[in-house]
Amino acid sequence: MTAAILDWAVFAAQILLTAAMACAAFRILRGPRAQDRVLGMDTLYVNATMLILTFGIRTGSQFYFEAALIIAMLGFVSTAASAKFLMRGEVIE
């Protein structure tokens, strides 16, 4: 009985995070301008980090933590580079 609580909580969290990623993906596809698409991509990265941490809790393995850390770092770098590109027209001057 008590094990079912955590089971259902992980399942519900996965559903909620997938819905959040769907909202961010909709903003990427629809976003009227380029900055909206970059904002949607940033949100998608953060939600993916949380979803992978939830996978880690589901399987009880610590290896998902490193994947989550790498996705968080890649999200920062890609969003910063995209914002620089929108500002200047080139990334490395």
């Binding site: 909580a9 969290a13 909620l16 959040a20 909202c23 949607g40 949380m50």
Partner: peptide, 18 residues
């Protein structure tokens, strides 16, 4: 369970705002 669902719910609310 509570912290996980609360965090995921906050992420969903933020993305709905997006």
């Amino acid at each position: 369970a509570f912290l996980l669902v609360a965090g995921a719910g906050l992420a969903l609310i933020g993305s709905l705002g997006l």
